[in-house]
Nucleic acid binder design. Structure first.
Length: 545
RNA sequence: GGCGGGGUAGCUCAGUUGGUUAGAGCGGCGGAAUCAUAAUCCGUAGGUCGCCGGUUCAAAUCCGGCCCCCGCUACCA
């Protein structure tokens, strides 16, 4: 991997709004983005991975007021929680941007100036039903008459018709350019279903966009007119550019990362990323991101999580209950990336046990412990390969091109599906080979089967690192794979395990998950089962042949 | 209302351009094995492929109609 020629890859998550604490949706997006970032790093790319918090705006101010804090103090407190979540989930972000940082103020001011210089920003009266108490405009349909007084339906606060002069962005001028860009770049929006929605939205016609407020002071001041602050869009979206330093003047070691290769966001904010954001960038003369990926939501047993239903799940609790890596794997494997998916305790336990403990973990454990016990504690030197051996190796060697193609479109779930289908093949190979039965009859054959099995496990461990970095590294430790031979460059024939390499005593890397509440019952059941087995064995022994 | 997506085994879903016995995983059932984290392997379970009609030698896959679910339909992000 030569840094100078390594292809760059810039990936971002949406920045989280920290007027509350992180929930499972934030965790899901962070995990998926992290897996993509890790995959690209392992594939030799020069990666910049960004996440952060979006700290301005009315809601921050309102929440702060309610808690008797300044918006800044609220942002500090809650952003810390998001940073903590990233750490707890094992997120490998290179930077964590907060929109209240000076660098972001600078970059947004510069973006504004460029858009203004392009003639796309102008002042205009913006009218609506304004609630002084909420400090926000409501549309006609969001208000109603109660006791002769017009109030905002959502909050019940009185509203009055107010006109404010705000700055507008000439979004209407970009309709055709945007459509042309979608046309020329069919993969600009993924998954494909989202594309249609955005295209039809743009085709319906774009109106100019109000991008400042003078009724709010918690925001980034408009250059040349500090009585106004930038209103949401520019502030919230431009963080992606800020992190590269491209708009902060001077030389910046990160400026080559722009444009982003993929913005990973929730499906609910696709429009802002696929319409407003590219229009701003076009106006400012900056290159457009290569892709906007709108992932789905994780639903709690089919229901959207909400405070009123009381089914909100805390990501910190989930990590505690199931383990960081198990949780990461579950979300990536179980929820088709780009679609909505379901979370349930049963589903998580099932995935952990079926895919990790039973299929991969147990395969590794049984093959490595046979090697440890029967091959002098060293990776065996294989004999001549049979057709079965070659087929097994070919299946593992063939995974890289497959998963690379899937990940070209951020198809995380399909990439893991591909790996696990070969894991399953490896279990069949191992069972069919019956190395334990050949211990005495044909030790060389046994050694070859064990070698081939360990070799494919090596590749599974390398390939699964983006989902489970720590566990996979432990697994690679068990095979004494050198630290510099764990990237995708070592996949396939060129990275084969070296016969004769001593290995440590194998230890389980992927334990079974047992619900603590059922653990006791399980233990009792296990004891009974053991007793039954013993009895059976005794009976068998006593039975004449 | 308009545009778009979807209704396939108990559960979660795959099913390219129509073609021999409609698939996978999980669960269930039967068997094998005992190297292993009681994990694994083999076999099996017989689902009107939402409903009706049409095209065709042949349709889950094409056409028409109907029923149900979901998404989008701009300034909270």
């Amino acid at each position: 991997m030569i840094p100078d020629v390594a292809q760059k890859f810039y990936i971002t998550t949406a920045i989280s709004y920290p007027n509350g604490v992180p929930h499972i949706g934030h965790a899901y997006e962070a995990i998926a983005s992290d897996a993509i970032a890790r995959f690209e790093r392992l594939d030799g790319k020069d990666v910049l991975f960004l996440t952060g918090t979006d700290e301005h705006g009315l809601k921050m101010k309102q929440t702060a007021d309610k808690e008797g804090l300044t918006p800044r103090a609220l942002a500090d407190r809650n952003a810390a929680r998001f940073i903590e979540m990233a750490a707890v989930l094992g997120i490998s972000n290179d930077d964590f941007i907060r929109t209240t940082e000076p660098r972001h103020y600078e970059a947004c001011a510069e973006l504004w100036r460029r858009m203004e210089a392009a003639g796309d920003i102008f002042k205009k009266k913006y009218g609506g039903w304004y609630s002084v108490r909420d400090e926000v405009y409501y549309k006609e349909g969001e208000t109603e008459i109660r006791d002769g007084q017009r109030v905002a339906t959502p909050t019940g606060t009185p509203v009055e018709w107010t006109e404010e002069e705000t700055y507008f962005f000439r979004l209407s001028a970009y309709q055709d350019k945007l459509l042309a860009h979608y046309e020329a770049n069919p993969d600009f929006m993924l998954p494909l279903e989202r594309r249609n929605e955005v295209v039809s939205f743009v085709k319906m016609g774009l109106e100019d966009l109000s991008i400042s407020r003078s009724t709010l002071d918690w925001g980034i001041p408009v250059p040349g007119n500090p009585a106004h602050v930038m209103y949401v869009w520019i502030d919230a979206l431009n963080n992606y550019v800020t992190a590269t330093g491209l708009l902060n003047g001077g030389a910046n070691p990160r400026s080559h990362y722009w444009p982003a290769d993929v913005h990973v966001i929730g499906k609910d904010i696709v429009r802002f990323h696929a319409v407003y954001w590219p229009a701003f960038l076009m106006s400012a003369g900056l290159p457009l991101p290569k892709r906007v990926f709108g992932h789905g939501f994780v639903l709690n047993k089919g229901e959207k999580m909400s405070k009123s239903v009381g089914n909100v799940v805390d990501p910190f609790d989930l990590v505690k209950a199931y383990g960081r890596e198990q949780l990461r794997f579950f979300f990536l494997r179980e929820v088709m990336f780009g679609h909505d998916g379901n979370y349930s305790p049963e589903a998580i336990a099932n995935r952990i046990n079926a895919d990790l403990a039973n299929n991969l973990g147990n395969l590794a454990q049984r093959s490595l412990s046979m090697i440890y016990k029967n091959c002098d504690g060293k990776i065996p030197v294989p004999g001549a390969f049979t057709a079965e051996d070659n087929a097994m190796l070919a299946a593992a060697d063939g995974l890289y091109p497959t998963v690379r193609a899937e990940m070209d479109r951020q198809a995380l779930t399909k990439y893991l599906d591909a790996v696990w289908s070969v894991v399953s093949e490896a279990n069949q190979y191992f069972a069919a080979g019956e190395p334990w039965a050949k211990k005495k009859t044909d030790p060389e054959r046994m050694a070859t089967i064990l070698y081939v099995t360990a070799e494919v496990v090596r590749q599974f461990a390398i390939l699964a690192q983006p989902a489970m970095p720590e566990s996979c590294n432990k697994l690679l430790d068990l095979m004494a794979v050198p630290a510099d031979a764990r990237s995708f460059a070592s996949l396939g024939a060129k990275g084969r395990l070296a016969g004769g390499t001593p290995i440590p005593e194998p230890q389980g890397v992927f334990p079974r998950y047992v619900d603590p509440a059922e653990a006791e019952a399980q233990a009792q059941q296990k004891a009974e089962m053991q007793a039954k087995l013993d009895a059976k064995a005794a009976a068998k022994k006593g039975k004449p042949k």
